[in-house]
């Protein structure tokens, strides 16, 4: 795949750079891929040592938790089987090897392969997160645009954004269920397999993120709106909508775009709560249970998968950001 991904655009003095440096996008991608591997390694390491530092015997967790009354012999056997009696560093290296070779093992608590558990649960969470991200972006853009267009809109949308971002998921979810499910009977409260069951969870997940994104976007939107090039554009007779679309929004999108990674992480956190509230299966709930049960293989697997998805999301966002503003990208 030696082909450049995009046609290199000469920019300033850079076009004279020799060799592969002439393909900044490709180079950036390679560096980023190396970085991504580093991130994943750090995540596995962090999970391993954090879970080891958590009070509680891992052998016990494997045997079904401290309430299981496992015998000493059984615990010893488990320690042998899972190499828990070896030095921590050896265990860590074994863990790394298992991770790299794809032997993610069986969940201690659910007695099923981690890979198949994740495969089963990831779809629901990703669908929820992507829909929520789209909704959050749409809401944030609408609010931001509204505040530029009208002073009243500025005040109202600012208030709404603050309220939205100060709204806990579990509270908003319960409120929406109370109104639209129990009260009006329009939408189901729990996942039923049909599409309308997604509406309430997506709104619950999107609203707080939209508040935050909107806040950021408006800041830069107002800055951009008052910037010299916007004034110039106006002076050249471009309509307000034209200014908004051609100049302001593009600039306002930049800081918000760099927040996409953050938004994704926030959505994943939110998913833990939202999946609980709406009784949806998914990675968030899987992870929550796994952390509480000290289920090392499952925690490692799920966190790793979330990290991989995150890395991909940021890679895309960064590439887009790089197209808008090359200096901002590494």
């Amino acid at each position: 795949m030696g082909e450049p991904l995009t046609t290199p655009v000469p920019r300033g003095g850079r076009s004279s750079a020799p060799g592969w440096r002439r393909w900044p996008v490709l180079r950036r991608l390679l560096v980023r891929l190396a970085g991504a591997v580093g991130v994943l390694w750090a995540v596995v390491t962090l999970v391993f040592f954090a879970l080891r530092a958590v009070p509680g015997d891992p052998a016990e967790a494997i045997m079904g938790g401290p309430g299981s009354q496992a015998s000493q012999a059984a615990l010893d056997r488990v320690r042998e089987e899972y190499a828990l009696n070896r030095p921590l560093l050896v265990q860590y290296l074994l863990q790394l090897r298992r991770t790299v070779t794809g032997q993610w093992g069986d969940s201690y608590s659910l007695n099923r392969p981690v890979v198949s558990l994740i495969r089963e649960q990831i779809g629901g969470t990703l669908l929820l997160a992507v829909l929520a991200l789209i909704l959050a972006w749409t809401l944030a853009l609408l609010f931001a645009a509204w505040s530029v267009r009208s002073p009243l809109g500025a005040r109202l949308s600012s208030g709404l954004e603050i309220a939205a971002s100060a709204m806990p998921h579990f509270w908003l979810g319960a409120l929406l269920i109370m109104v639209f499910s129990t009260g009006l009977g329009w939408l189901p409260a729990i996942s039923t397999g049909s599409a309308d069951a997604l509406i309430l969870p997506v709104i619950t997940l999107a609203v707080p993120v939209a508040g935050f994104l909107g806040q950021v976007m408006r800041e830069s939107l107002l800055n951009a709106d008052a910037s010299p090039f916007a004034l110039t554009a106006r002076a050249h007779g471009l309509s307000e909508t034209g200014v908004l679309l051609r100049h302001t929004l593009a600039h306002a999108a930049l800081p918000a775009l760099s927040l996409t990674g953050w938004a994704f992480g926030s959505l994943m956190s939110g998913a833990v709560v939202v999946e609980n509230v709406f009784a949806r299966p998914g990675l968030g709930r899987l992870l929550m249970g796994a952390v509480l049960k000290r289920d090392m293989p499952l925690v490692t697997g799920v966190v790793l998968v979330i990290a991989i998805v995150y890395v991909l999301v940021t890679l895309i966002a960064d590439t887009l950001e790089g197209l808008f503003l090359p200096e901002a990208a590494a």
Partner: peptide, 11 residues
Amino acid sequence: VEVLFAFPGLV
């Protein structure tokens, strides 16, 4: 920053 990001905050 990415390592911290890649961990969902709540987790």
